[in-house]
Nucleic acid binder design. Structure first.
Lengths: 258, 258
DNA sequence: CCAAAAGTGTTCTCGGTACACCCATGC
DNA sequence: GCATGGGTGTACCGAGAACACTTTTGG
């Protein structure tokens, strides 16, 4: 996918194109099989899992960088993406071991003093994506990916478990104040589907009737005139998100985008 | 305060000690004369106002850096300090004009390519301090300071008005979920004092009776057996914050420290 | 006794929660 | 007709909001 020359150039000269010491690491949430999952990449050399990530171009606004990085890894544009914290207590992002592996020892001298070994702060975003539309592309440092259920996250590289934890906390906190379902579900969905999504995210049971009432009074979703046939059972109605209501609420400051 | 040699060394070699491209800029709130104020510093050369700020040492965790920077400017330790956002759409933090002024044109060649001219992301914190305990020390770039009421903030350098706005929004959002009064008021205070503080922060009237009830049910403050004599009027009772309740609530996750 | 500030209760509304039965569908 | 999952209403409780009079104090 990437040529060896490109890689060596990145290691040696990347800091001319990108800001050193800062990375953007999105926690990408998806939803499938009734589970909330996050996308992790497997690192070469270190043989551990970590968040997708990338660097900010020298002249690029960070929100744009975040969107670019997300698109590079998933192919997705215009999805929910929100900054939630900047972590800067763990020191290194890249490890020598990893670079040695991927350069296959060829560029030994290049590695010395590479900008990639320097301390890197992590500006963290979380994103919500339709799992089925994601097309994962690994980067220089990684060679595999996997969607992990949030209750089966392994120990991550670079102390990123803290990042994931905080992303989850933030997600839960904003569940009723941001159009969070609308990026995790297909455009049209049934009530049981969104109900189950919310239960999964919050990790607790929600009363069906109260849930519906809340969604309706918040004006978040609207009932459509269509039903879906699900075989041997009563056909559920389909619903859609009411994006205008969110936008209106955001404008009025009812919803705080942090 | 700072010698000229130190300054020139900082301009030339600061990046060996500090991380370039990242600064920490605390929005420092104080409260006096019934007004919520923030501390701004006046820049040399640019003749404009900006937030206090500083850089992160190469091996220093960022929370520690934030506390250090706050202490360097105000002399205060162990005060409320919370990260709220990282800004990275505006490009420059230092301007050549400013450096020329402070070096008095002596170090012209030093200025060329200084790390200080490079793009800098701003990791922003907000802090709450007891205005009367602050002892402001300016830094290399600044020569004056002033506490501005939040309704009289001038146009700031480096597009920092956005930072201040977001700090205020966050402060308001967390008013009932963080021990926000306890760092802005003296240890013992009267009900009218804290009431007025909350009205000032939220910029709206709060009913006296409802306010007291809320504070008490939240368990935030407790009534003492002392009164203060205020001259020709009824003597108000003194209150104290209940720190244990905050800490308990924080532990239980009732309060979200973002 | 008067001016100025402190202190104190009740009512209403609304959002949150608890709770159980009937309906539609395909086999 | 039955198994499975979908859909619906009511009653209670607690938090928030509205609202006005009495008490204390020093001059």
């Amino acid at each position: 996918m990437h040529s060896q020359e490109e890689l060596l150039d990145f290691i040696k000269n990347g800091h001319k194109q990108y800001l050193p010491h800062v990375s953007i690491d999105p926690v990408i949430f998806g939803y499938s099989d009734q589970k909330l999952k996050i996308l992790l990449l497997k690192w070469k050399g270190l043989e551990g899992w970590g968040l997708p990530g990338g660097y900010i171009k020298r002249e690029e606004p960070i929100s744009q960088a975040a969107n670019r990085i997300l698109e590079e890894r998933t192919g997705l544009k215009n999805v929910f993406l929100q900054q939630f914290y900047t972590f800067g207590d763990s020191h290194y992002r890249t490890h020598e071991q990893s670079l040695k592996e991927i350069t296959q020892e060829q560029g030994e001298d290049i590695l010395k003093g590479s900008w990639l070994f320097e301390r890197t702060l992590s500006i963290s975003y979380f994103s919500l994506v339709d799992h089925s539309k994601v097309n994962v592309t690994t980067d220089f440092f990684t060679y595999d990916y996997h969607w992990f259920g949030i209750d089966e996250i392994p120990e991550l590289l670079f102390e990123q478990n803290e990042v994931v934890d905080k992303a989850l906390t933030t997600l839960r906190l904003q569940l009723y104040h941001q159009p969070i379902g609308s990026n995790l579900l297909p455009e049209k969905f049934t009530l049981p589907e969104i109900h189950s999504l919310y239960e999964t995210i919050l990790d607790k049971k929600l009363d069906q009737r109260n849930f519906l009432r809340k969604m309706m009074t918040l004006g978040i979703i609207k009932k459509l005139d269509e039903q879906r046939s699900i075989g041997a059972h009563r056909s559920p109605f389909l619903y859609q998100f009411e994006k205008e209501n969110y936008e209106e609420a955001l404008k009025q400051g009812i919803i705080h985008a942090n």
